[in-house]
Amino acid sequence: MFFTIIGICIGSVLFALLGYLIGGFVEGCDRRISARMQGRVGPKIRQPFWDISKLFKKEKASTNPSENTYITCALVLLVISGGVFFAGSNLLLSIILSTLSTLFFIMAAYSSRSPFSTAGGAREILQVLSYEPMEYFMAIIFYIVIGSFNVITVSLQPQPLIVYGWPVFIGMLFIQLVKLRKSPFDLSTSHAAHQELLQGTLTEMSGPALAKAKLMHWYETVLMLGWTAMFFLDARPESWIVAVVAAIVAWFLDIWIDNNFARVKWQSMISWCWGITLCTSIVNFIFVSLL
């Protein structure tokens, strides 16, 4: 138990540092590739790092000081969630902590009392409602196939999780779009202030609070890529390469879908997400119970 806590602490610190570097690099590549898809040149890969440092240097001006507290809590919880996952500890704990972090983010959106961020916060709740069930089903299938909730046990398996968990993997790929707030599911927050609610939940955030919200997005991206890669890991060392390649392919697919689809309304989002959750989970349960 003691070693688990030490492991989680070390994992969180490492995730905070490495996640920052990898997350920023991934974000930079994302912007560059999106720009090329749109026929533009795009910014340098290092641009997100410059953006974050610029935001931290800005004046602290917020409509409600408690917003900063909520965002900091959200960021810390997300880092711990990533630490739990990458230390190889309990998957279910990682999922619950990441949801808790999103709830703090929603509270930060509501705390500013502006109509845009309040409506954005309401939409963010709907987004959590859409993707949460899938994450829990993923954890359940993980337990059924592997026999433990600990992520580290994946590296002791003879074959990767994808063999028995492929329907749930498809569902996971879908809800990743919602979790990462990519078009067609960027209802609550778009990466540019181009929707009817301006920038939704991020409208009233500026300076350090906005920097922390952006950092949260980076860490979430790295965590999602980690969950994708987890499906391809097993005891063989070459599976690590396969896992990294699979994560990159999934990430590239997300960018392509982001650029080529229009935003949907919340009713479509919930019906699509729940529909896919139900179908993939039921198929996976049947598949696993037959074998």
Binding site: Q38, G39, S183, S190, A192, Q195, N260, F261, A262
Partner: peptide, 16 residues
């Protein structure tokens, strides 16, 4: 119009 509903790539191409 394309940008208003999140279709940024079409927005960029049409303006090009």
């Amino acid at each position: 119009t394309a940008d208003a509903f999140g279709f940024e790539s079409l927005f960029m191409h049409v303006w090009r």
